[in-house]
Design a binder for these strands. Structure first.
Lengths: 339, 339
DNA sequence: CTGAAAGCGCTAACAA
DNA sequence: TTGTTAGCGCTTTCAG
């Protein structure tokens, strides 16, 4: 059997409460006592039973991170950032994949596992604005992503509209005349695709240009292969363009590949900018200009907001919206063009 | 406060034991009783307190996965496979990153968090054969990776030597005369680099060719930028070759980029094959031939072996070594060459 | 087939 | 400054 507080107490010749005090850094302990207890702990190799502590204190020291899919580089990097931020608060992270499926998102969110963690970070993908009421769960919750705003929980996101506008303006500044909005979702207003399209339109309009609907290209999923496929179709129907704002990096990379296969040079013939700043963009050929969405800041903010809610679950403070700062990252795919 | 078994028992007019029986699918319950209890559970929205259950039963239903770094695509895909395999056993996964640092690996492995999970999957990177004794922990453990063999715990890995040999033979079969072993680690025998180099040497030898030491290129870390850098240096010193076996996909992709910048065509001038079959290899330009290390099988095997150990922690069965099957995946980077 | 009661290891009132 | 004690919610003998 494992060593318990009792064993340590007996070995150190003190009561179990004293051992508990030492472990929990209770301030008023005689130095000699503390030393004796610590020695006993080391000697016996005592480690606290976290289930017991969780039962008693109501805290487990774990949080859950719900994301669509770790194979997606964006979410893997988000998870990494979250785990490092959580580590600084001595929290451990349970990751649960939703596959971006509505049923699964709800299942995970309302499942019994939520009772195993102190709080949840939920990167929403399938649920939408109309489902906001379903997010009202007993566990402290912070939402991530662009699907639900002003819901019943705190929300950390990026400046989608502004960032997309800045990306588009970057291409306009390069002298691009016909800029593709690549990755739209039909009829979506809220959501990454909808918001980024809005930013694109704002930039075009601010430049005093007419909006050419034929330059808006839908890409259903945002995997590399979807980007490649959509670009292949666009070229097949003879679409003409000299700039490309992709709504994420993966489809940008997929599109770049197809462009290059077609003998189109980047950035000379077409300048390309993506979205997310995943690691890979630094190493593609050419390296990909993109938007750094402030992932680190998002993760840090989300964890600390969650910590506050955990610390004071009864707080009456209404849910808040947080927006991380973005940055236009200029790389080869938009560099060296005449401006 | 949350709903407890007592509340459900009271609502259903039965004892707490009966509710517990229903929840745990105890077979001998009158149907009418079961129905009444289930109704009460649904009505009150009862969810079991997992800490209490964990304290009482000694099981938490969670396992820990220790990996170096989620930003590394290989480990992200491994984590995904593990989480899906674990899900099939109703296990949830806590991911902990070691950064591939020795101190951190030990810290995590011996930390108190291990008492929060039923078992651990540990993808070893920094610890080596001499540290095998440090893996003797009270929590059921399954090791992954190529660093420690025949240690005190079950071990699931891939056929490194055979796979590397097969990759090399694939290039030999294509007619390559000077094949680079790309990604070696000086003096390493055990470990991914060491084993894969062994496979390379076996293939060269079996083909009746002399081993040319100058074709063995060290690459310290295995990130894309390291591959690019090593290739740049190789070209600078005038190294001549027409084939490239990279010991992982990332350095293969980095090297490909540098080769292409130098005007070297793939596969016409240099045929390239990588290792790991990360998602990205399907979409690079050209797509990258590689070794599928049997990640799915590794994950499934690891989880089920761990489950067995958890089910019978006192088992005297000695630790076992498992090897997943590999597969040579031929893509554009080695296709269409005269054979 | 169901109920009563003990106790998993810990924290936190309350005492001393 | 330290000890005593009562549960946290659940599973599990042991009776009935």
């Amino acid at each position: 059997m494992a060593v318990t507080l009792h064993d340590v107490a007996r070995a150190a010749g003190v009561s179990i409460k004293t051992v508990s005090n030492v472990i929990n850094d209770y301030p008023h302990i005689r130095e000699s006592t503390r030393a004796r207890v610590l020695e006993a702990i080391a000697e016996l190799g005592y480690q606290p039973n976290l289930s017991a502590r969780g039962l008693r204190s109501g805290r487990t020291g774990a949080i859950s991170l719900i994301i669509p899919d770790l194979k997606n580089a964006y979410f893997a990097e988000l998870a990494d950032a979250v785990m490092r931020a959580a580590g600084e608060h001595d929290l451990v992270v349970m990751i649960q994949q939703s596959g971006g499926m509505r049923e699964r998102e709800l299942e995970v969110l309302h499942g019994p596992r939520m009772r195993m963690v102190d709080g949840v970070l939920f990167s929403v993908l399938a649920l939408g604005q109309d489902d906001a009421h379903l997010l009202d769960i007993p566990t402290p919750l912070v939402m991530l992503g662009e699907r639900i705003f002003n819901g019943p929980a705190d929300h950390v996101t990026m400046k989608n509209v502004e960032a997309s506008r800045a990306a588009t303006e970057h291409l306009i500044g390069l002298g691009c005349r016909r800029i593709l909005a690549f990755g739209a979702h039909e009829n979506e207003v809220i959501g990454s695709a909808g918001l980024r399209l809005t930013g694109y339109k704002q930039a075009i309009e601010a430049a005093g240009r007419p909006l050419d609907e034929s330059l808006i290209v839908n890409v259903g999923n945002w995997h590399r292969s979807d980007g490649a496929e959509a670009m292949r179709a666009a070229l097949a129907r003879g679409l003409q363009f000299d700039g490309l704002v992709a709504f994420n990096d993966s489809i940008a990379l997929g599109a770049m590949r197809v462009l290059q296969e077609a003998g189109i040079r980047i950035p000379e013939d077409v300048a390309v900018i993506g979205f997310d700043d995943i690691d890979e963009t630094r190493y593609s050929l050419p390296s990909l200009s993109t938007i750094d969405p402030g992932r680190e800041e998002i993760a840090r903010t989300a964890v600390s907001v969650l910590m506050e809610r955990i610390a004071d679950p009864a707080s009456e403070r209404p849910p808040r919206e947080y927006e991380a700062d973005f940055r236009v990252v200029v790389r080869e795919s938009t560099m060296g063009r005449a401006s």
